[in-house]
Amino acid sequence: MRAVLTVLRKELTGLFASPIAYLALTAMALSMSLFFLDNLKAFNTQLMLLQTQTAFDQIRAGTIPPGLNLFQQVLLPTVTDTALVLLALIPLITMGMFCEERARRTDELLMTLPLSHTQIAAGKFLATFVFLLAVVAVTALMPAIAAVHTGLDTGPILASVVGLLFLSFAVASIGLVCSALASNQLVAALSAYAISMAILDFSWMMEFTGNAVDRVLHYLSLMTHMAGFPRGVIALSDIVYFMGLCVGAFLLTRVSLALERIH
């Protein structure tokens, strides 16, 4: 365990020393704020429009039209938008984790130290996850402020943050295995994008497949397993799906490191 923590600490130092880390955090904070404010503006505009229509009477009577609330019109779309930004951002964070070691030839130092492939991979995976905690924490800022000032239910907000974390871990795991397998950082990032986008939502493929395949594709889609979190539902099956992706990618990374010694 000590060896894993040592690798984790080194990787975190590297992550926080790189401009990509600060770019990622800034991009996340900016995009999250923009999405949140944009959705809030749209919500306000809709409220203003309703005031001039018949629904105004309904609102005055206390019967707000279904779906017209901060949660559905601001929080839900913001979580979806944030998930997409994370999908675009994470491959940039993970692309160098293994590729850069090879490109700078520091892998020779790392691989000749008494570290097992599991320890190296675990250290790098955990460091990326810790860094993503910071990135996702930034995304939680605006909804947290909204919750404090509007009395929004904190359950769905917390569940959304948990969902975004699991999604980030899964996408990062894909990015890390791509970095371990690819010959350079660009290939690693592009492969991670391609895989993440492909499994993001398989619904487009369902038009060409049968019912049984539909069910499988539906289960494999990232978005299927993200859907429950913003509604405040943390389902075990969704957690198993995301953890399964992480463990699968971790094992592949480990195998890739072992194969590297044979080359």
């Binding site: 000590r2 060896a3 600490r9 080194k10 790189s18 020779e108 130092l109 008494p114």
Partner: peptide, 23 residues
């Protein structure tokens, strides 16, 4: 190694600590 490449983001002390900890 030949033409030793060291971690650009670790100080010399940090690098020696890292190697010492791994050992």
């Amino acid at each position: 190694p030949e033409h030793p490449q060291l971690y650009a983001d670790l100080t010399v002390r940090g690098l020696l600590r890292f190697v010492g900890n791994v050992h």
